[in-house]
Simulated scan of single mutants.
Amino acid sequence: MKLDDKLYLVRFNTDKLNHIKITNGDLCLKCKDKVCTFICPAHVYDWDEEENRIAVGYEGCLECGTCRVACPHGNIKWDYPRGGFGVSWKNG
């Protein structure tokens, strides 16, 4: 089964409160590789050329925590969403 097929089985109850924060935007400007933009399986992070910053689309977060581990500067504050919100996995 392809990743896109598996992601189709995921359902989200999106909270209005963002559970992901970039701690210091200036560090992102200095980051050469911008690992968060390609390490996240849900593509939550995107480099916004016009605004010269990382855009975070937390609504599609799979809650794997890969981003906070992969960021070479430890610049991502990531918590689980509040109870009742976030990802729910559907089997079958």
Rank of each mutant, 00 (worst) to 15 (best):
Y80Q: 05
T37V: 10
L17I: 09
L29S: 08
F85L: 08
G86N: 06
G65A: 11
D4H: 07
L29Q: 11
F12E: 00
V10R: 14
V69K: 08
L3K: 12
G83P: 08
L17W: 03
F38C: 09
T23M: 15
V35Q: 07
R82M: 11
L7Y: 13
K16C: 13
E63M: 10
N52T: 10
E51K: 08
E50I: 13
S88T: 15
R68D: 05
K32A: 14
L62K: 06
N91S: 13
F85T: 13
T37R: 01
I76M: 01
N75F: 05
R68A: 05
I76C: 01
V87K: 11
K16M: 10
K30E: 12
K16P: 04
G84N: 06
A42G: 02
A55W: 13
H73N: 08
L9Q: 14
W89V: 12
C67K: 02
A42M: 07
D79E: 15
M1D: 05
Y8H: 10
D46N: 15
K77T: 12
Y80A: 10
C40A: 03
V69F: 09
C40L: 04
N18L: 09
I39V: 13
K30M: 13
C36I: 11
G65V: 02
P41E: 03
F38Q: 06
H19I: 04
A70I: 03
D46V: 14
L7K: 15
C40I: 01
Y8M: 06
V10G: 06
A70M: 12
N18C: 11
D4V: 08
V44W: 00
W47N: 03
K30Q: 14
L29I: 09
A70E: 05
C64V: 03
K30P: 02
L9F: 12
Y80L: 14
N18H: 13
C64H: 05
D15F: 08
C64G: 00
N24I: 04
P81Q: 04
F85S: 03
L62R: 02
E59T: 06
Y80C: 07
V44C: 02
I54P: 01
S88L: 07
T23A: 09
A42N: 00
R82E: 14
L29G: 15
C31E: 05
F38E: 07
E51C: 05
Y58P: 01
D26M: 12
V35D: 05
N13Q: 08
K32W: 08
D5V: 05
H19T: 04
D33N: 15
L29K: 13
N91C: 06
N13K: 12
W78M: 01
K90H: 12
L29V: 11
N13R: 13
D26V: 10
N13D: 08
H43W: 05
H73F: 13
W47M: 00
Y45I: 01
I39K: 04
V10I: 13
A42T: 03
